[in-house]
Each structure stands twice: as C-alpha cells, then as structure tokens.
Amino acid sequence: MPKVSMTVNGKPVSGDVDSRTLLVQFLRETLRLTGTHVGCDTSQCGCCVVHVDGDAVKSCTALALSLEGADVRTIEGLANGDKLHPMQEAFRENHGLQCGFCTPGMIMTAVELVSRKGHTLDEKTIREELEGNLCRCTGYHNIVKAIAAGATAMGAKA
C-alpha cells in the first residue's frame, strides 16, 4: 500500500493507505482523530471541514494521497491544552450548538473565515460564508452570534 505523510496539528504523521482513502478516513481511522465528522459524505454538509495549508476544505472530498506533505489542522488542533480556542469558547457562551454534530465543521469554517475577512463580521457575511455548513438543530441563529463573538475575541487575543 502507498504511504502518505503530512503534518497534522503541528505533528508529522504518516501511514500506509489504500489509494481510495479519503482525508477524513485517514484522520479518523488511521490517526483516531474523531473530532472531524462525516455527515452527508457528499460534500454538502461541512461537518468534515478541516484546514489544509490554511484553507477550509471538505475532508470527505479529498484523497489522503493528494495531500502528501500538506499542513492539516483539525478541531483537535485548536485548543491550547485545557484552554478552548476563542471560537470554541464563543460557541459555548452563545449556545451555538445543540447536538454538536456539525460543530467541528462550523468552528473550522468560522476560524478560516476570520483569517480571510477579519474580526468584524456582519450577519449577512457570516450567513453567506456558512453556505457549505448545515446544522439540523439550531436554526443557525446562535451559530451566527457565536461566530461574530468568536471573531471579535480572536482579534482581542491578537
């Protein structure tokens, strides 16, 4: 089987994979990083969003082998020890989740959004940017609030 190597959450990792292995399978099954979820498996729902070289991508729709040498960040790579990332904290504070299944993808999308569009985000921008992330519980209202608050908090930290 071919071997793939990449950096995940700052650590070099590698594994033997079938050529068909998707990035999300490599993360969940080989590395046991099960925070990244598979919702629809058809690149619609965004539960599997991770960062590849800083860009938010749907890890259910990328071959692990394609990402040889890439720098990948997952939801497990956000917190600093026991201290939650400001975006994670904002989701908790604003009750931006109910069942929590979509939350890792929402947060990874939100963090990348802040890296592109800055710390002051209006509701329209957030809702447009959440196009590729589906939540079946919250009606999005508190997710949008959480992202606005998280974006501000990330700015305050910097």
């Binding site: 690149s43 965004g46 969003v49 590849v52 860009d55 938010a56 991508v57 749907k58 729709t61 990328a62 999308t109 990348e112 959004l113 940017e129 196009e131 590729g132 992330n133």
Partner: peptide, 9 residues
C-alpha cells in the same frame, strides 16, 4: 460556485 470550501479546491 458551490460554497467556500468547494471554491478552495
């Protein structure tokens, strides 16, 4: 096209 994550790939 698609959504932000799709446009990134």
């Amino acid at each position: 096209i698609g959504d932000p994550a799709v446009r990134n790939r």
